[in-house]
């Protein structure tokens, strides 16, 4: 069963080409991965794309113009000197086996971890942006609601549970593995 193509849907290669033509060197890398599943070995494609912070908001704008993307979540890594945010999008949903997973990652310097909000384009990003703010210590510029979401209000300042350096939660962690002798 070959995937049916809707009038203006792009396949993964076209989508990558579209972004590369539009943003040139601001797209640092783009990689397409395909995984087969089942007896019929149908494929699902995944695009991993790394973009410059300066072009990030424009990339999302172009994506929203192409098809309103579904944003399941934003995940993040503390990579030592930088903080990597990965925006997991899916596009082309609504037709059988045609969906593309699009993971857009942005590197932020740890000295000034700031990024623009995308809540004005995708209102559903609010929950996950609030979570990134409290868990990773990333400042989301222009977020409509900057309160804490999961952590209690009396949480100590400058402690971020997902960090791996001295601002991490090490000292608040109890060793639960000890067995009473």
């Amino acid at each position: 069963m070959s995937p049916k193509k809707e009038n203006n849907q792009k396949n993964p290669e076209e989508l990558v080409k579209y972004f590369k033509d539009e943003f040139k060197t601001s797209i640092r890398s783009a990689e397409i991965k395909k995984r087969k599943a089942g007896s019929k070995k149908n494929e699902t494609s995944t695009i991993w794309m790394k973009v410059e912070k300066s072009a990030f908001k424009d990339v999302i704008k172009h994506l929203v113009d192409y098809q309103f993307p579904h944003l399941p979540v934003v995940s993040g890594n503390d990579l030592g000197k930088t903080i990597e945010l990965i925006y997991h999008f899916t596009v082309n949903y609504g037709t059988r086996m045609n969906e593309i997973n699009l993971h857009i990652s942005v590197d932020l310097p740890k000295s000034k971890p700031e990024i623009e909000t995308i809540c004005d384009l995708i209102p559903g990003a609010l929950v996950t942006e609030r979570e990134k703010q409290e868990m990773l210590g990333v400042k989301i510029v222009g977020i409509p609601d900057a309160r804490k979401l999961f952590l209690p209000d009396d949480w100590p300042e400058n402690i971020y549970p997902w960090r791996r350096d001295e601002t991490g939660p090490e000292k608040y962690y109890k060793n639960l593995h000890e067995v009473k002798k």
Binding site: R35, A37, G38, N42, E99
Partner: peptide, 8 residues
């Protein structure tokens, strides 16, 4: 939407 497990 996607092909994973045997859903395809």
């Amino acid at each position: 939407d996607t092909s994973y497990f045997a859903y395809g």
